[in-house]
């Protein structure tokens, strides 16, 4: 039972991560492999504050969202100037730099040793300590993420995002400040990813840089793609599939290192398979058609 709750919590975290990345990549067409950086920054800000300032959960999460949002704005800036495949490289750079800071600034972040002993969160007087408690908390944040995203994508704002995804020139000629939209969407996406990071930090009560690597970013983008870029529920489906699938492998009784490899081979394989036969994923709308072709 505990195990089941643990899986559901993980799914919840990845739902938040993938829905937020979907806003950036699926709806606005900005492919980014920097999302684990936002996730990690959120986790570290909350953890550092909880451990050093003993501040409350609410304060920590707000700060985590703000700091991650600022990083998001930074990552968004290159998208104003450089083409989409070069932009992916830029996001790759941000991801590596962020990981490097988390891993090497030992005096501040604990370096490879990470930050242990993160206290349990107390919200409105209630201490969250059980798996069930965390699951409820995560579910609330998932709901918040989905609600915010749904509001955005079904609005005129969301319409502009889809326009930018297909043809920035048309959007500009229609009076839309494309640069502002891109930065905003990165700030919102990064902020939501930070929430997932905060949840992760409190739940596991220990964080280290190895949870926030390039491979993690690639995993999150795989969820978005396989679930379906540009659809609201696609990432949810993707998160469920990609978190559950490797768990099913446990029942095959493989040694754990091979199981870890097999898990990655599966989602790498799914990525290739979907690119070849259904780039828009299970439920998606956007198949990464090139904007450049129209210039």
């Amino acid at each position: 039972m505990e195990y089941l709750l643990h899986i559901l919590i993980l799914i919840g975290i990845y739902v938040i991560l993938s829905v937020s990345l979907n806003l950036i990549t699926g709806y606005t067409g900005l492919l980014s492999i920097a999302h684990a950086a936002f996730y990690g920054v959120g986790a570290y800000v909350a953890a550092l504050m909880a451990l050093n300032l003993h501040s409350t959960f609410l304060v920590n999460i707000i700060c985590a969202v703000i700091v991650s949002g600022l990083l998001g704005a930074l990552v968004g800036i290159p998208s104003l100037r450089i083409r989409d495949d070069y932009f992916v490289i830029a996001t790759f750079a941000f991801q590596v730099i962020t990981f490097s800071i988390l891993n090497n600034w030992v005096s501040f972040t604990g370096g490879p040793m990470g930050l242990p002993g993160i206290p349990q969160p107390t919200i409105f007087g209630l201490q969250v300590s059980s798996h069930l408690g965390f699951l409820i908390l995560i579910a609330l944040f998932c709901a918040l993420t989905l609600w915010v995203t749904r509001r955005i994508v079904r609005s005129p704002f969301g319409r502009v995002l889809k326009a930018i995804r297909e043809d920035e020139v048309f959007a500009q000629a229609a009076g839309k400040n494309v640069a502002a939209y891109k930065i905003i969407v990165f700030v919102v996406g990064a902020g939501m990813a930070a929430m997932a990071g905060v949840m992760y930090a409190y739940y596991i009560s220990f964080i280290d840089p190895t949870s926030f690597t390039v491979m993690e970013s690639i995993f999150i983008i795989s969820i978005v793609i396989i679930g379906g870029a540009g659809s609201l529920w696609g990432p949810v489906v993707g998160a469920v599939v990609l978190v559950l699938l490797p768990e099913l492998l446990r029942f095959l009784g493989l040694p754990s290192s091979v199981a870890a490899n097999l898990r990655q081979i599966i989602y790498g394989g799914l990525l290739v398979v979907f690119m070849m036969w259904r780039p828009r994923g299970f439920l998606g709308e956007y198949a990464f058609q090139s904007k450049e072709a129209r210039e």
Binding site: L31, D84, D85, V88, M215, I218, I221, S222, I225, S257, V258, N261, L262, Q264, I265, Y267, G268, G269, L270, L271, V272, M275, M276, P279, A287, F288, Q289, S290, E292, A293
Partner: peptide, 28 residues
């Protein structure tokens, strides 16, 4: 993939997937 008119992003993503598969095969 190119023949189907896919964009460079799709090929990049496929290449990424291949990277993951092969690196993990070596590791296994």
């Amino acid at each position: 993939l190119r023949r189907k008119g896919n964009s460079p992003l799709v090929l990049l993503l496929a290449s990424l997937g291949i990277y993951i598969i092969l690196q993990n095969l070596i590791s296994a």
